[in-house]
């Protein structure tokens, strides 16, 4: 008898605390997005998106910055996707589960995912910039980011492959279809969603990165002529304007608005795709 009212109070308090917490989070997030977009959007124009930065970034646009960003992301994906795909396929389709090698690789990928991005920057600086003599360059920055998003690509691709029913593998094997063809014609198409979602999330993570780039791809705002030129990404541009350029806020806002909206878009698209595929999959299994 006596527990009933106390418990009901507990229930109400919990609900209230939950709503308060959620409201605080939503408010802070909304504040952030609203503030960035409100201040930034007025500065964003076609000229801003295409012009070269001038006066240390206080004037001009972010055209060359966007080019460098895309180049770095391109290098990053060119290294992370093949390597990540190969790793995930091997772990899922070829390796004996629970062998020492599989356990070691999975743990090392888990640990890789935990390495702070600034440490990736240190590593990239020593290995890519100095030992491989790439200097402060788009190539060095892209390679560094490639190492960074590798675990993410492996993880989502692996999950995609694991969601393919075993009957498919057995059916293909019973027809003496080689592993290579099974993979190319049957498994990879079926696991495509995992690959796409992984690549998109990796892309978002790489585009958001700053700390790993300040010692690897550098700060140069000129239009890059090759992958061996230094180039700054949008996120490094924001950092530089915020930290090193007095009265750089206006352009930092505008760049932040562009970056934030692009990343929100990529992430929403990735989640929507993942959701839709998940639904289709459950629909299929209940059929």
């Amino acid at each position: 008898m006596s527990t009933q009212p106390r418990s009901a109070t507990l229930d109400r308090l919990t609900a209230m605390a939950g709503w308060l917490a959620a409201a605080a989070i939503v408010a802070a997030f909304g504040w952030l997005v609203f503030d960035i977009v409100r201040h930034g959007a007025s500065e964003v124009s076609w000229t801003f998106l295409t012009a070269e930065p001038a006066d240390a970034g206080r004037a001009g646009g972010i055209g060359t910055v966007l080019v460098s960003t895309l180049l770095i992301l391109g290098v990053c994906l060119a290294i992370a996707v093949p390597l990540g795909l190969g790793t995930a396929v091997w772990l899922s389709e070829f390796a004996r589960p629970c062998s020492w090698r599989v356990t070691a690789i999975r743990w090392s990928l888990d640990l890789l995912a935990s390495v702070p991005s600034i440490v990736f920057g240190l590593f990239g600086m020593v290995v890519f910039c100095q030992m491989l003599r790439l200097g402060f360059s788009i190539a060095a920055g892209g390679l560094t980011l490639g190492c960074m998003i590798l675990p993410l690509v492996v993880q989502t691709t692996y999950a995609g492959l694991q969601s393919v029913p075993n009957e498919l593998r057995a059916g293909a094997a019973a027809l003496a279809i080689s592993r290579a063809s099974t993979l190319r014609h049957l498994l990879l198409p079926a696991a495509l969603h995992g690959v796409v979602v992984g690549v998109m999330l990796g892309l978002g993570r790489a585009a958001a990165e700053t700390a790993a780039l300040i010692f690897t791809s550098g700060y140069v705002t000129r239009m890059p002529e090759s992958l061996l030129d230094s180039g700054r990404t949008a996120s490094v541009h924001i950092y530089d304007l915020a930290m090193n350029v007095p009265r750089g806020e206006a352009r930092a806002y505008a760049t932040a608005a562009v970056l934030l909206l692009t990343l929100l878009l990529i992430n929403v698209a990735a989640t929507v795709l993942a959701d839709r595929w998940l639904q289709r999959q459950t629909a299929r299994s209940f059929r």
């Binding site: 997030f29 585009a207 700390a211 924001i238 915020a242 929100l264 992430n267």
Partner: peptide, 20 residues
């Protein structure tokens, strides 16, 4: 929403912190 919050670049968090 939480997932989106996860995707916001840390430099944007930092910048927002600086100006707000």
């Amino acid at each position: 929403l939480l997932e989106l919050l996860n995707g916001v670049p840390s430099v944007v968090f930092g910048f927002w912190g600086l100006v707000v």
